[in-house]
């Protein structure tokens, strides 16, 4: 009531480029430590691939938070569901996967991804309806309920698919690496980078060029004003929740293929990285999430080579350092 409308800072969030130098700095620094250019390139590609997968999973979560102040601690469940659904689809398609034809391989993968995204999207809708909706605005209960949902989903996956470790082999054409000079670039990692970039691109276009996208960005900043303009923010939020869940499903497929074995707990490991990423990026910011994913993945891959024992600890270190520099993350979202 009393604040004198302070003049806004003259720099818009879009012109803030300093954080973009971070990945370059880390990559450069790692290059000096690693020494061998080929190893460095391989690791960097691995980092980019991993970063893209983490980004795909994290982007939905950060928007869900931005819009409705909801953090879904059960987000990992959709990663697992995506992986299992893909496995179920790829089972009958095994001949396509083993055929020595890139087209057939990709077709099989495409079908699996579609199934996984549809399935996780529908389940995301149910999850929002049953678990999240009754506890809007109550953070403590939200954390507990979504965590409970995660337990239940993981257990149900065991009931349906059995509790043993599953394997998901890469299709024939995506195994191995392409050699450029004496640098080996793994084919699957290239694919993961491509898929991740595609998702990022589509997301950027949606957020910047469509009315829905504008509404999402406006809603992240001030949901109440979006309602006062005559839009139902809840409907928008449910849509984003579904899309976020579907993206987690996609991420789950990619991640399971990357690791080639998984259990229902597959989401747990990733979600830790995902949380670090969205904290680093600034809760609610898609751009920050993209950058954060690359940073965390770089840190993870370089340290896995240089000092394997402290891989995850290095991500924590990165997070703490960044939070000391910018307590709200790299690209804080202007809130109300």
């Amino acid at each position: 009531m009393t604040d004198q409308a302070a003049p806004a800072p003259l720099i818009g969030p879009k012109r803030d480029l300093a954080p973009l130098l971070l990945p370059l700095a880390i990559a450069g620094f790692a290059f000096l430590l690693i020494g061998s250019p080929t190893t460095w390139l391989t690791l960097t590609l691995a980092a980019l691939a991993m970063g893209m997968m983490v980004f795909v999973i994290a982007s939905g979560l950060t928007l869900i938070f931005g819009l409705m102040d909801v953090i879904n601690f059960g987000h990992g469940a959709f990663i697992a569901i995506g992986a299992y659904l893909a496995m179920a689809v790829l089972g009958p398609l095994a001949p396509w996967m083993q055929a020595d034809s890139l087209t057939l391989n990709l077709a099989a993968l495409f079908l699996a991804i579609i199934a996984a995204m549809l399935g996780t999207g529908v389940l995301g809708y149910a999850f929002e309806r049953v678990l999240v909706r009754p506890v809007y605005g109550q953070h403590l209960k939200q954390i507990l309920i979504t965590m409970g949902g995660l337990i239940v989903v993981e257990q149900l996956l065991h009931v349906i698919f059995g509790g043993d470790q599953k394997t998901m082999a890469l299709p024939t054409a995506l195994r191995g690496a392409v050699l450029i000079g004496n640098v080996a670039l793994e084919k699957y990692r290239l694919l993961a980078v491509a898929v991740g970039l595609l998702v990022f691109l589509v997301m950027q276009l949606t957020l910047n060029r469509t009315r829905i996208g504008l509404l999402i960005r406006a809603g992240v900043e001030n949901a109440e004003m979006v309602e006062a303009l005559g839009y139902r923010i809840r409907r928008l939020f449910v849509g984003v929740f579904i899309a976020g869940s579907a993206l987690a499903g996609l991420g789950g497929v990619l991640w399971a293929l990357y690791r080639e074995t998984f259990t229902a707990a597959i989401g747990g490991d990733v979600v830790v990285l995902v949380f670090i990423v969205i904290i680093i990026g600034g809760l609610g910011s898609v751009g920050g999430c993209f950058l954060g994913a690359i940073l965390v993945a770089m840190m993870a891959n370089y340290t896995a080579f240089l000092a394997p024992k402290v891989a995850l600890a290095s991500s924590i270190l990165l997070m703490v350092t960044i939070l000391m520099w910018r307590p709200q993350g790299l690209y804080p979202v202007a809130k109300r």
Binding site: I71, H139, F275, I279, K309, V310, M319
Partner: peptide, 23 residues
């Protein structure tokens, strides 16, 4: 900061500690 932040950070720190202890 918010409860959510604390929950997420503690989750990350605990995972790192677990891995550190096993490594």
């Amino acid at each position: 900061v918010k409860a959510i932040f604390f929950a997420m950070i503690t989750l990350a720190v605990a995972s790192a500690f677990l891995i550190l202890a096993t490594q």
